[in-house]
Simulated assay, not measured.
Amino acid sequence: MAGEYLTFRLGQEEYGIDILKVQEIRGYEQPTRIAHAPHFLKGVVNLRGTIVPIVDMRLKFNCSQAEYNSFTVVIILHLRARIVGIVVDSVSDVLQLQSDQIRPAPEVETSVDANCIVGLGALSERMLILLDIERLMSGVDMGLVAA
């Protein structure tokens, strides 16, 4: 679990994902909507010839709808053989976490599947929710990644 994590914000919470899953970070652009898609799937964008589904993590995690502004970014992820974009409020930084800085996640009801939380990163005053982004994006409700 020790390693480098890209940190991003959704509302007041700060999350971390494995930096090795991140392909690039882009400014938000309005995706092309897809009919009958789940509410959190904003649509798709054409990224250099690859059609990339865009998931709004605020909607996925049942956050209050945040505004799209100059800080809103899309993190392009490379998950197995699939490229997926996630919309977040802002990207913070890349942090190196050691094993002793990662605590087990508490067993509580959250809007995030508990199996997708790998732990909590503790850094002085900051607390990061570390996500298994590949598992989160391959959930049945996503319909994005085949098992």
Rank of each mutant, 00 (worst) to 15 (best):
M1K: 14
G3L: 02
F8S: 02
R9M: 06
E13K: 14
G16K: 10
D18E: 12
L20A: 15
V22K: 00
Q23H: 10
Q23Y: 00
R26N: 03
Y28A: 03
P31A: 07
T32C: 01
H36W: 12
V44C: 05
V44P: 12
R48M: 07
G49L: 09
I54Q: 03
V55K: 07
M57K: 00
K60C: 04
N62K: 14
N62G: 01
S64E: 14
S64M: 12
S70G: 10
S70M: 13
S70N: 15
V73T: 14
L77K: 09
H78I: 08
H78G: 15
H78N: 15
I83H: 12
V84R: 13
V91S: 07
V91E: 05
S92E: 13
S92D: 14
Q96F: 08
Q96W: 09
L97F: 04
D100Q: 15
I102V: 00
A105N: 09
E107C: 02
E107L: 07
T110A: 13
V112Y: 01
V112Q: 06
D113Y: 05
I117M: 07
I117T: 05
L123K: 07
L130V: 01
D132G: 01
D132Y: 04
L136N: 01
S138R: 04
G139T: 15
D141R: 06
L144E: 04
